[in-house]
Amino acid sequence: MSPRLRALVTASAISAAATAGYLTARHSLRAELSTVRHAATHDPLTGICNRAGLSAAADTLIRTAHTSTRPVAVVLVDLVGFKKVNDTHGHDAGDHILTAVASRLTGIAGPAGLAARLGGDEFAVITTGPATRHHDADIWLADWLTHIHTRLTTPVSYHARPLAVGATLGAALADPAHSAAVWLHRADLAMYVARANRRTTAVFTATTDTPAMATADRPRDLARPTSPLAAAPTTRRAA
């Protein structure tokens, strides 16, 4: 091989190695960025969206679902008796319940919906109904809430032992006329109505959003403030 040909081969090999190295580095960087984005928008314990993930996707999801003539429900879920599980059976049991609830909510949300853990034992789910039920969405949502509550409160098996799961649900029918934060706030008000009336579920109505409910420090808020996503800007919350 002539010196000139040898130089060309060497240069070609160096160029190929540099290109391969660049492509590998770019692929690695993309993978790292994807991992960072996922960690920023998902709950590390349950694997479903966190508050940031819900905030980023909710408005688009509601708008898309609503334009398909399907009713859209925003539901807040607050587990009942969760602290007792932690105190009695340990935090591993509590984590097991949180993971089971997240899995159930993911199934309830379906491919067109979204489930999120807002923090602690509070969850949210955005789900859609059948297109043919848009005209009687209120009836659909009331029935759907009962179905969700039944699925969520089925005892969870932990080390061959059934653990009780309690939950209170508040819901609102959503549309693109308002942001997701407004619908979450209204679902939160409905949840308060359910708690105040010792019920397991409640749906937001026009009479739910009274000045007293919107401005008062409610017992649930004093015990544990709800997610910032569920708080309207004008609502006064406990510190």
Rank of each mutant, 00 (worst) to 15 (best):
4 R>L: 15
198 R>W: 10
128 T>I: 06
89 H>V: 03
13 A>P: 00
63 R>W: 05
87 D>R: 12
32 E>P: 00
194 A>G: 05
70 R>L: 02
206 A>Y: 13
28 S>H: 11
48 I>V: 12
93 A>C: 11
184 L>E: 04
220 R>T: 13
154 T>V: 07
137 A>R: 15
176 P>W: 08
140 W>G: 03
111 P>M: 15
226 T>R: 15
34 S>P: 00
8 L>F: 11
221 D>T: 10
171 A>R: 02
192 Y>T: 07
177 A>N: 07
169 L>K: 04
37 R>Y: 09
175 D>V: 09
221 D>L: 04
203 V>A: 07
179 S>C: 04
177 A>D: 14
191 M>Q: 11
176 P>L: 13
163 L>P: 01
214 A>Y: 10
195 R>N: 01
108 I>P: 02
189 L>I: 08
204 F>V: 06
56 A>N: 04
164 A>D: 12
83 K>N: 06
61 L>S: 05
74 V>K: 06
207 T>S: 09
162 P>G: 05
131 A>R: 12
167 A>H: 03
83 K>Y: 01
228 P>T: 10
134 H>N: 15
11 A>H: 04
229 L>V: 12
189 L>G: 05
20 A>V: 08
35 T>C: 09
38 H>Y: 14
85 V>G: 00
41 T>A: 12
175 D>R: 09
206 A>M: 05
196 A>S: 08
93 A>G: 01
119 G>A: 13
80 V>D: 10
163 L>C: 03
174 A>D: 07
174 A>F: 09
60 T>Q: 13
90 G>I: 00
139 I>T: 09
195 R>I: 08
176 P>E: 09
221 D>C: 13
214 A>R: 15
198 R>G: 01
104 R>I: 02
149 H>R: 05
236 R>Q: 08
105 L>N: 03
75 V>E: 01
133 R>H: 09
57 A>T: 15
43 D>C: 02
202 A>M: 06
53 G>P: 02
76 L>Y: 04
119 G>K: 10
83 K>D: 09
39 A>M: 12
33 L>S: 07
214 A>L: 08
193 V>G: 02
63 R>T: 12
38 H>F: 15
113 G>W: 01
